[in-house]
Design a protein around this nucleic acid. Structure first.
Lengths: 182, 182
DNA sequence: AAGATCATGTAAATCGTTACATGATTGT
DNA sequence: ACAATCATGTAACGATTTACATGATCTT
């Protein structure tokens, strides 16, 4: 029942940005903004939302919209805002990092070089399309000057830079592995 | 009891590299090699090791060493090796990524700019010391030419490049935030 | 003699994912 | 009408972390 801890703050934070939102919209929004460093699934969002409401950190503004489709819309309460702020003030904990791609690479000795090269090649394609997506979003949000979205732009910029240097690494790694055969 | 899935492969892989090892050494080894993309705790290592043995993927070479200190030392069996290889051939799945640092940054609007700047500053220090560590390891392992450690070096290189571009981003982000006040 | 580190494990709590389940509405 | 997508939720399972528990040995 209590899917909580970090998911809680992610939801509180998104709610602060959106002012009011349903679970569904919260998820959709995260997909286009935080997905590269934070994701939630519906199965965690709905229970957390319920939990947060019980804790009086958010409150339901039950809207059945124009077309009377059932939707539970929530907003932050004052307590919710202050809980969010308290958390934001604490230095971020670094979380466990598990990267299967790098793990397989690390064990590359045990398989033919071609296998690892193919993995890298595949990875390169994935991050290339991510890069295109991030850059598109970056273009939409606009210039760095508009204070409103600085934080979105800064995190986006982080993702873009990381991908760019990953791409360079891909090429270097592939050429190292190819030269290995000789 | 069955702590399995990914941890299993990480342990199988490390065992392949080390030829034989105890749970304790496995962990120590991961701390100095894979820790930036993969960690295990003792509480997962020991049960997985037991499980792996039951599955005949590893076997115990019970050594009570010179100083008769109790140690369970394991090696891969043929089946273990083949299970590891099968997994290595499959394209890596991309795993969930949760970065609390970036999440807090994303919600930076809700706290004074100084707080976020301090978070970045702190992060910068952390990755700076990681960078020094990785470079030291890189130096120890030696040149890119010695085929033995190419895979270690390639993954290390990945970590180093990522940190370097993160450092650049830190400076850019800090200066963007500082200029925001005016 | 004390503190660090070697060494192994269990139990409980937490947390997250996948599969399951349902049904309305919108766009074509 | 059919597909996509809006919208919410539950149940079971799988996996991980933290706390608990113990004791030997090595180093200073």
């Amino acid at each position: 029942m209590a899917k909580s801890n970090k998911s809680q703050y992610a939801i509180l934070g998104m709610l602060a940005l959106l002012k009011k939102s349903s679970g569904y919209d919260l998820k959709k929004n995260m997909e286009s903004t935080t997905q590269y460093f934070w994701k939630e699934t519906f199965s965690s969002i709905y229970p957390v939302l319920e939990d947060l409401e019980k804790q009086k950190l958010i409150s339901k503004v039950e809207t059945t919209k124009k077309n009377d489709r059932k939707r539970n819309v929530y907003t932050l309460t004052a307590q919710g805002k202050s809980k969010l702020k308290d958390w934001l003030l604490l230095p971020p904990e670094d979380m466990q990092m598990r990267n299967e791609f790098l793990l397989k690479l690390f064990f590359g000795n045990m398989v033919p070089t071609e296998v690892t090269i193919a993995h890298i090649e595949h990875h390169k394609q994935e991050i290339t399309s991510k890069l295109a997506f991030y850059k598109a979003v970056q273009g939409e949000i606009g210039d760095f000057e508009s204070n409103e979205f600085v934080y979105s732009l800064i995190t986006l910029d982080h993702g873009i830079r990381l991908i760019q240097s990953s791409l360079e690494w891909c090429d270097a790694a592939i050429s190292t592995l190819k030269s290995l055969k000789s």
